[in-house]
Design a protein around this nucleic acid. Structure first.
Lengths: 221, 221
DNA sequence: TGCGGCTTCATTGTATACAAAGCTGCTATA
DNA sequence: TATAGCAGCTTTGTATACAATGAAGCCGCA
């Protein structure tokens, strides 16, 4: 995407992911255009792209809103993600290059660091977790798969999920990443796939359990 | 999509699917705008959508071309399709409504008709095949899944595949559809999934075999 | 007071003009 | 003759003005 459209895209996406715009809130082209200093044309383009990525939904009368995800939506999105990332892991197994394996290792070292701190650094965890998964997806070497995954992985959900993790779960997550690397080293696609699917399904259940039992509150015993 | 953009979308898509525009051919916004009597703005929107659907590819300098699919691309797209449509069939199993089951039945009756003719009516076969699969996907009741599948199922490939089918294969295809309906009636998601995956993987191999052994030629003994 | 229809306003869709970025082919030079 | 660099042309990107469409509030009537 070119300069203005790209800028609009990142601006809007940022607003949504950071929570500055809340789910259900209406997005007006004019307002957004002013907010990021471009005209409506590139804003429209950015919005169409975000719509394709399910971050924006449109009403039947063509108005745009920050997407609100139902529980069922989220369950479905985790299911698809597990399937596709599992497939990606299997494909990556005999395509991944030594350099990429090294990068995976580095990301996970950073994750271990973030988790080991007195109060875990969730932001760093999320960043390197994302980096790790991106490398795996790229290593699968399918442009189509990469795009599909981009349109499924709801970063707001990933974020909220990570925030629910306690230290043990964060460590468990890092351990699963390590197991995936070992599976790659052994060139075992079935193993890689199984690890990845388990990894994502566990994340789903942490997320979904949290919906029934809201976040830990210091005041609650 | 609104009127002009929608028109542009269907026009361009039609040109590509019908073969009027050949793979690798460049698409110019101005030319297309004139060809379907709208301005460049809606044409650009349509092109972005078609790009998301992999019917159009863009060069690094932002020029657009009718997509050329490598063998690997196609193999990957069949793999993804089998996975996702298999999932859709499983989900559809306990969501499909009686009316939809009836529609499936009707489509398949039409397919049987098309196949039974002296020279099978491939156009009708394709139309009702598409209808059948669409009903299954819809019955799965996931907007996200529907969109994902739309961006994967390459109609040009489906078309070419169907043209490779001989009568036995066309009948086999109809039989598989019938088996899927039976699986639905028995509310057996695993069965439905297995049938769907087999159905698509078989199509893949017909397509891929045809690449090594070109179409049957009357002149060849 | 409740409701149907109208008016007005807010918002999105489309066309067009201009700007920017690439490609092409020429010319000048070694 | 080969090639670097420039000039002009093609194509895409962005801004802006205007058109169309849908939403919200208002008024009059029952």
């Amino acid at each position: 995407m070119s300069k203005a459209a790209d800028r609009a895209y990142h601006f809007i996406r940022g607003e949504i992911l950071s929570g500055a715009m809340t789910p259900g809130e209406q997005l007006r082209e004019e307002t957004l255009a002013e907010a990021c200093g471009v005209s409506r044309t590139p804003v429209r383009e950015a919005m169409r792209k975000l719509e394709a990525e399910n971050l924006i939904q449109r009403s039947d009368s063509q108005r745009s809103f920050v997407a609100t995800l139902s529980v069922d939506d989220i369950a479905e999105s985790f299911a698809l993600r597990a399937m596709l990332e599992g497939h990606a892991a299997a494909r990556a197994t005999d395509r991944i290059k030594p350099g990429q394996l090294a990068t995976l290792f580095d990301h996970n070292a950073a994750i271990r660091d973030a988790v080991a701190r007195e109060t875990p650094d969730i932001a760093a965890f999320i960043e390197h977790n994302r980096g790790f998964h991106t490398v795996v997806t790229d290593a699968a070497g399918s442009e189509r798969l990469t795009r599909l995954l981009a349109s499924i992985v709801e970063q707001p959900v990933v974020l909220r999920t990570a925030r629910r993790y306690d230290r043990a779960q964060l460590e468990r997550s890092a351990a699963e990443h390590e197991e995936l690397v070992v599976a790659f080293r052994h060139r075992d696609p079935d193993w890689a796939k199984a690890v990845m699917i388990g990894h994502i399904r566990r994340a789903f259940h942490v997320y979904s359990d949290a919906l029934t039992a809201p976040p830990r509150d210091p005041k609650t015993p």
